[in-house]
Design a protein around this nucleic acid. Structure first.
Ligand code: FES
Ligand code: FES
Lengths: 153, 153
DNA sequence: GTAAATAGAACCATATCGGTACTATTTTCT
DNA sequence: AGAAAATAGTACCGATATGGTTCTATTTAC
C-alpha cells in the first residue's frame, strides 16, 4: 500500500512533540504518557532514533533523549530512513551495490533509481519543523485516533 | 521498509515492455513468457491495471491488453496507485475523509498531507516512457534477477 | 548501593504479501 | 453450434513482515 509503518508514524509524532522544546531532555515514560502510547513501543522507537544519530541519549537516572539538531535541520527523510531502513524501491537496489549479478546489464536499475531519488528528495524537502508547526506544541492524543486499535492494554 | 511490492515492480516491467509497441495487443501468456514470470501472477497484475483503466482489455480468443494512453502520458504514480492502492502515509488519511472522528482537531493531519502530496507529485513527475527508455525494447529477464527466488516452478 | 533510566536482543500473535487455483464469461474459429 | 482461447473475478494458502511485549545488561544520579 506504499504506506509508512506505524512506528514511523509514532516516531514523527514523538519528535514533533520534542521539537516544541528542542533543548529539553525528554525521557521515554514522559513521552509515552504524553502521546498515549505504551512505554515499550515508545522506548523502542527512541532507541532506534538514538542509534541513528537523530537523538542524543543520556543514560541513568535523570536520563532521557534530546534532539541533536534544530527541528529545521531534520528532514522527514532522515526519520523515515532511521525507522524503516533505507528507502529502497526494489530488492536489487537495497541489497546494496554489487549484490545483484545482473547489475551491469540490467536495463531497469537506472530507472528505478530515478524513482528512488525523486521520492527521497521529496521527503528531504520537508523538515521536522514543518511537521510540528504551525499548530503549536500541543500533542495529539494518539490513543484516541480512530484506526489505532489496541494500543494501551 | 517503504518499498513497493513485487507486484508493482513486475507491473512496471510488463508495462515497460508494452510501451515498446504502444499500439499492439499483448496477451497474458505472451507477456509472462517474455518476462519469465508465472502466468497466474502476470494475469493478476494485468487484471488490476485493466480494472483501473490503465489498460484496455479484449476478451475471448485473440484477446489481450493494450495501453490506453501513450507511454508519455502514463505516470508511475498511476501505476503504483493501481497496484498498491492509494498512496496513503497514515491510517487516518487513507481511511478516507470523515472516517476519523478526530479530524477537525487533529494537528498532524494537514502535515501528513504535506508528505503525501510531496511523494505523489514526485511519482507523477516520472512517466512510463522514462521508465521504459532509453534502453530500448529489450526486456529484462526477471527470472534471473537475484532476489526473485521462486518464480517459475 | 539503590533507583531510574537507556541498550539491546529475543519473542510471538497477527496482518500483509506473493503466488496459485478455480469458476464464469466473452470472443474467435471451424 | 460447439470447441478453443482468452480475460474477469474470487477464494485460498504458505511465507514474510509488522506491531508490540518482555527480559537482561549497562549506565548514571542520589
Ligand atoms: S540490478 Fe538486479 S536485476 Fe537489475
Ligand atoms: S485524522 Fe485521525 S487522528 Fe488525525
Amino acid at each position: 500500500m506504499l504506506r509508512i509503518t506505524k512506528q514511523t508514524d509514532y516516531g514523527i509524532v514523538l519528535l514533533s512533540h520534542m521539537a516544541a522544546e528542542p533543548e529539553r531532555l525528554f525521557n521515554a515514560p514522559e513521552l509515552a504518557e504524553a502521546a498515549g502510547l505504551p512505554l515499550p513501543t515508545v522506548s523502542k522507537i527512541l532507541k532506534m532514533l538514538a542509534r541513528d544519530g537523530l537523538l542524543d541519549s543520556h543514560r541513568g537516572a535523570k536520563g532521557g533523549y534530546c534532539l541533536v539538531s534544530a527541528p529545521e535541520e531534520i528532514s522527514v527523510a532522515e526519520i523515515i530512513f532511521s525507522l524503516e531502513g533505507p528507502i529502497a524501491m526494489t530488492e536489487c537496489i537495497d541489497d546494496g551495490p554489487g549484490e545483484c549479478q545482473q547489475e551491469g546489464s540490467c536495463p531497469l536499475q537506472a530507472n528505478w533509481q530515478l524513482i528512488n531519488t525523486a521520492v527521497r528528495q521529496a521527503l528531504q524537502g520537508i523538515s521536522l519543523r514543518q511537521m510540528a508547526g504551525p499548530m503549536g506544541p500541543q500533542l495529539v492524543q494518539l490513543a484516541s485516533r480512530s484506526a489505532h486499535s489496541s494500543l494501551q492494554p
